[in-house]
Simulated scan of single mutants.
Amino acid sequence: MIGCLIIHGFTGGPHEVDPLRVYLSERTDWTIEVPVLKGHGEELNLENASHEEWLREADEALRKLKEKCAKVYVIGFSMGGMIAAYLAAMHKIDKLVLLATARRYLSLKYLSYHIAEMIGDGFKGKINDNELFTQFKSKFGDVPIKANIEFMKLVNYTKQYLKDVKTPVFIAQGQKDEMVPFKAAYHLDEEIGSEHKEVVFFEQSDHLICLGDDSNVLNKMIYDFLVQKIEVNAPV
């Protein structure tokens, strides 16, 4: 039996990766798990959540899946990508997929530019028409400072394990992604220790890569990567 663990991003939930989950479910008989990390999901409650808990919950989900399945794939989106890479370093898994992975923090250039734009719309009385304001009000408004610090701690902690990842890996990055710096995919390619690495950039995708215009192509490429036979030389 094959198992597939999919890990969502910071302040997100299973909805961020659901099109991919559905695509894989319709084409396979795999056991697919998409756990909700503490404080995440449809209603955020991140005040008391910690990066240690997020890592532990993902680790437990993987262990349970490995108990049932002889072969296991791990897929991670954004912060979930760093968690997935950490799991691949700590456990024997068969393949790893990293989507818009937060190898660094969210882009300060992006945030500063759009926050300035948001303030400008506020002065013009158009604040409710500002897309970023709507996102902040519905999502980031529920995110305490402590949770953002925990996110940064998780990225800092997991980066050191990238070199220990040896499983074949597929790295996908949207070219319109302004949340995670564009060069993050290149850094992942350089730092991950795997012999087999595939890096693909998607022209029409922003940070929510599983929900973007390239999602159908992305889903097929992930499926093809997971089902193909990859010969990897055994370590000496």
Rank of each mutant, 00 (worst) to 15 (best):
G9E: 02
D206V: 00
D18A: 12
Y86H: 14
D94L: 03
V97W: 04
N148Q: 13
F10A: 06
I149N: 14
F77Y: 01
K66Q: 02
L65R: 00
C69F: 04
Y186Q: 05
K229Q: 09
F201D: 00
D213I: 04
P14I: 03
F77C: 02
I6D: 01
A147S: 02
N216M: 14
K64S: 00
E47F: 15
G13E: 02
L154H: 11
F123R: 11
L55M: 12
E67I: 04
E131W: 14
I230T: 04
L108S: 09
G125N: 10
N219T: 08
K159V: 11
I149F: 14
K159M: 13
K38N: 10
D94S: 03
A85P: 09
L62K: 07
T11H: 05
W30R: 03
T101A: 13
N219L: 05
K68G: 03
K95F: 00
S205N: 11
E33Q: 09
G125F: 06
L46I: 06
K137W: 10
E231V: 02
L108T: 04
I2A: 09
D59Y: 14
T31K: 12
H114C: 00
L108N: 10
D29I: 09
V217F: 11
V143G: 11
I115C: 01
I145N: 10
A102H: 08
L24K: 05
N233V: 01
G13Y: 04
N48E: 15
I145P: 12
L154S: 06
N148G: 07
K68H: 08
C69E: 02
S138D: 09
D59M: 11
E190I: 05
D129N: 14
R21K: 04
E190V: 10
I2V: 09
H196T: 08
P14Y: 04
G9N: 03
G81M: 05
K92W: 06
G9I: 05
L44E: 00
E131K: 15
V236R: 14
L96S: 00
D29P: 11
N219S: 13
K38P: 09
I127V: 08
D29Y: 12
G80V: 03
Y73P: 04
L20C: 01
D189R: 15
K153Y: 13
V236N: 15
A185D: 01
I2M: 12
Y86W: 14
E42V: 11
T31D: 02
T31G: 02
I6W: 01
T158L: 06
N148V: 07
K220H: 05
S78H: 03
A184V: 03
L208Y: 11
A234F: 13
D177E: 06
V227Y: 03
K126T: 11
V22W: 11
A100D: 06
